[in-house]
């Protein structure tokens, strides 16, 4: 019973996803196919990765607005390094990843050591990364290097014609690692403790500063990886990519059952959140008659419903607590 109750947000996400998928499959011909499912993963891999990073930050009670910009910055760095400086694709990828991770670490340090609100720091980070990306190149840069194309074409063959593409694989891999870190490592658990109650976590002797910097570092790394996947999928770097992505990522995390106040939720929910997001988008494209902007309305509505649900659940336990404190 309690297990059920605790997981209501996640179960609700799963139920919404299942309903969406079944509904779309019934409504649209060819929707229920392996190809569509794989496309879903492939197209939403960058969003999914940023959402995974965002999950860490939100679990720890923070917020990261810079993810979309950092992704764009990484993509353009990779493109320019390969195309204009003749770097080996792998070296370019590594440098871009290092850069994004460093950006994340930097923001984490500013947040923790200078005690400026995460909202402001990551907002500045967003402007900074976007500006840097545009300084490097205002226009999108296509990547034609053979090595890069080969990398992008990798995949695990599933049936004769279908591969699971590398972007989907990386996304799933990252998801797996993230799930492992959050569930089975001490640092992952201190992320939950930090988000649950910072003061208590401090009194329990956990290293708060290290954990805080860690989550922003992870988010930076994930955004960088999202940038890498973006170049693989689009065969180009685009300094204007991922505008507004941070909000989509936050929405996906919340719809996936993670509390924005921190401490409750997980990356599995985020996967569901991203899938819901992608399914709505795909279904609207399949429909053809609906404006693509229905996606945003639908996501907004879902966001509202989920936040209200969380609110109802937490206030039920909150009331119990309040009663006991006063009584």
């Amino acid at each position: 019973m309690s297990l059920l109750r605790r997981n209501i947000p996640l179960l609700a996400s799963v139920a919404v996803y299942a309903a969406l998928y079944v509904g779309a499959s019934l409504a649209y011909h060819h929707f229920c196919s392996l190809r569509v499912l794989i496309n879903l993963f492939e197209e939403n891999a960058p969003l999914g990765l940023t959402a995974v990073g965002m999950t860490f930050v939100i679990l720890a009670g923070g917020i990261d607005l810079s993810v979309g910009s950092v992704m764009a910055l990484c993509s353009i760095v990779i493109a320019v390094l390969i195309e204009q400086h003749g770097w080996h694709p792998l070296a370019a990828l590594a440098l871009a990843l290092g850069l994004s991770t460093l950006l994340g670490t930097g923001m984490g340090c500013i947040i923790h050591y200078l005690q400026i609100a995460p909202f402001i720091v990551t907002l500045a980070g967003m402007f900074f990364a976007r500006g840097l990306a545009l300084i490097i190149s205002v226009e999108p840069v296509p990547i034609r290097a053979a090595g890069h194309a080969w990398l992008g074409g990798l995949g695990i063959p599933l049936t004769g014609q279908l591969d699971i593409p590398i972007t989907a694989l990386v996304f799933l891999g990252a998801l797996f690692v993230a799930a492992y870190v959050t569930v089975l490592t001490p640092i992952g658990r201190s992320v939950y403790a930090l988000g649950g109650d910072e003061e208590a976590a401090l009194l329990m002797g956990l290293r708060i500063g290290r954990t805080k910097v860690f989550v922003y570092t992870v988010s930076g790394f994930c955004s960088g990886l999202a940038g890498v996947l973006f170049t693989l999928y689009q065969s180009a770097g685009n300094p204007s990519a991922g505008v507004g992505m941070e909000l989509d990522a936050i929405a996906a995390v919340v719809v996936g059952g993670t509390l924005l106040t921190g401490g409750v939720g997980g990356v599995c929910g985020t996967l569901i959140g991203v899938l819901i997001f992608g399914t709505i988008q795909t279904a609207i494209i399949f429909d053809g008659r609906l404006s693509s902007w229905w996606t945003r309305v639908a996501i907004g509505t879902l966001l509202l419903l989920f936040v209200l649900l969380q609110r109802a659940l937490t206030s039920a336990t909150g009331r119990r607590k309040a009663q006991h404190v006063s009584g």
């Binding site: 500045a124 967003m126 900074f128 976007r130 500006g131 545009l134 205002v138």
Partner: peptide, 10 residues
């Protein structure tokens, strides 16, 4: 370019 403005703003 406006791109520098973003960085400076930040």
């Amino acid at each position: 370019g406006q791109e520098y403005a973003l960085v400076i703003k930040a």
